[in-house]
Design a protein around this nucleic acid. Sequence first.
DNA 1: CTTTCTGCAAAAGCTTTGCACTCAA
DNA 2: TTGAGTGCAAAGCTTTTGCAGAAAG
Lengths: 168, 168
Amino acid sequence: MRTDPNIEDFAASNNPVVRKFNEFIDAHGLRRTTERYAILSHIMNINGHFTIEELQQLIDADGFRVSRSTLYNTVELLIEAKMLRRHVFEGMQAQYERITLPHTHLICTTCGRVKEVRDPNFAAFMNARRFNAFNTDHYSLYVYGTCSSCARKSKRAKAADDKKEKRK
Amino acid sequence: MRTDPNIEDFAASNNPVVRKFNEFIDAHGLRRTTERYAILSHIMNINGHFTIEELQQLIDADGFRVSRSTLYNTVELLIEAKMLRRHVFEGMQAQYERITLPHTHLICTTCGRVKEVRDPNFAAFMNARRFNAFNTDHYSLYVYGTCSSCARKSKRAKAADDKKEKRK
DNA sequence: CTTTCTGCAAAAGCTTTGCACTCAA
DNA sequence: TTGAGTGCAAAGCTTTTGCAGAAAG
């Protein structure tokens, strides 16, 4: 990708996320490429979870051209920098999210939507929790179930079914 | 696979796990094939987590012949029957485990070993926990870190390094 | 100028699928 | 007897890799 003034400004900005990435880049003797910052800036615009495909589409839609290899490569870098996390929920493809405050993931097994929930009690529990012969780095709590929207839909479908049943 | 007297006995046994599978089979109008019971019996011999490849090897080593398609097919059946769960831990391939009592997974990010830990306090917390607009079915807690064995190894490696450094 | 990084296309996992044959019911 | 289940090989996805050319420092 050719140099891009907007991306250059972004890379030089003192946004804490950008700074953290710059520190990682410098500490590892890596290069500040336009692609890396273009990817980071798009990730920062996403709220919640995204797949590689979704990220690619966002970048494409903005008129940037970044190859799949570079996308995977950069995402891997962000994971090493502890700025991004990769989740694989039951029956779904890998999703990524920026590391922010600890939170619980509520995954609807019907529609696949993932919602983040802050849970200070649980966070406190985990902070205090020590495991035998094990040094904790980080953790993920995945809660699977049905979201209210899907529950409503299936209730309606059931009601319609019962009605049909009655008519017979 | 030809009928096998041992497998037939196993399928007819009143082991609760076998019974549960039989109920599922019957409730869904499925067939009691030798392959399905051969696979189930091998899964029941495994303690903890296993990959598809590991399961295949155990079955092969016992002189059974089951195709990969059937393996995946049956594993899927067991998941639908809520007897098996599929986990994808960070940076690893899918692993399966039989559903037993709820437990926490400790995953060593160095050696990849997974350890199950019962945690009654956490179980009680989750039993009481209700999420807004969400109906919980089940949950998984993954804790990533370093196991004591890997911690010891890296400490030794560091000590050796320091010594070398000193000699210079 | 040197070396890392990127893009491409090809390869490499793991998992699923289509189809002919087998076997449970 | 008959349709569900199995095995095989081929296809499908996501992710990784090798290599030539581009660009960061």
